[in-house]
Nucleic acid binder design. Structure first.
Length: 196
DNA sequence: AGCACA
């Protein structure tokens, strides 16, 4: 707006003496493409008659309304879209048929596992010592002790989750003769021991 | 609390 007053009447050609004449346009330039004015137009004849009857009586009659709303396609039921969405929703069923007490699983939702993780062992605990304690519980499969790094930790594999759980409950907090600290801490391993 | 082996 300031440009108008400061430039109006200014000589833009000193040799001819011509001056600028500036005034406000009577209406703003078009900002948005009106329906059908752009290169790409959505053509949908399926719902046209119903939509046009309602839309034409609205603000479009005022002609110069600066509504930014896109043309058409408001709440008209789009047949193709609804059909696609319904077909996508058919993808979740049939894997919850297992019984609640299914002990065949090696890994369950609550983290139970047929392999146990044993920590808080003494620094000089040996695999043989631990094995002699654990191997007397039913279903015992194999024991591995890993001492590299800090304190040793052990992994004990059982036939199934029930046997692993029984051994864990029986040995939880038990102190080995070699332990210089508290009793051992047993949990379910995060992953099953590699296939025997 | 700390979770490897292949």
């Amino acid at each position: 707006m300031a440009a108008l007053h400061s430039l109006n009447g200014v000589k833009f050609d000193p040799q001819t003496g011509s001056t600028l004449h500036i005034e406000l346009a009577r209406s703003n330039s078009r900002r948005k493409n009106k329906p059908g004015s752009g290169p790409y137009v959505v053509i949908d004849n399926r719902t046209k008659s119903a939509t046009d009857d309602r839309e034409s009586s609205g603000d479009d009659a005022s002609g110069d309304s600066d509504s930014d709303d896109p043309p058409g396609n408001h709440d008209s039921g789009n047949q193709d879209d609804s059909a696609t969405e319904k077909s996508l929703e058919k993808a979740a069923d049939g894997n919850n048929a297992s019984a609640p007490e299914n002990e065949q699983l090696e890994k369950t939702a609550d983290g139970a596992c047929s392999t146990l993780f044993i920590a808080n062992l003494g620094p000089n605990c040996t695999q043989d010592e631990l094995k002699q304690v654990i191997s007397q519980y039913p279903g015992f499969n194999i024991l591995k002790l890993r001492a590299r790094g800090g304190m040793p930790v052990a992994f004990a594999d059982f036939e199934g989750i029930e046997q692993a759980t029984a051994a864990m409950n029986a040995l939880q907090g038990i102190s080995l003769p070699s332990s210089d600290r508290g009793g051992m801490h047993i949990e379910y391993a995060r992953s099953k021991m590699r296939k025997a």
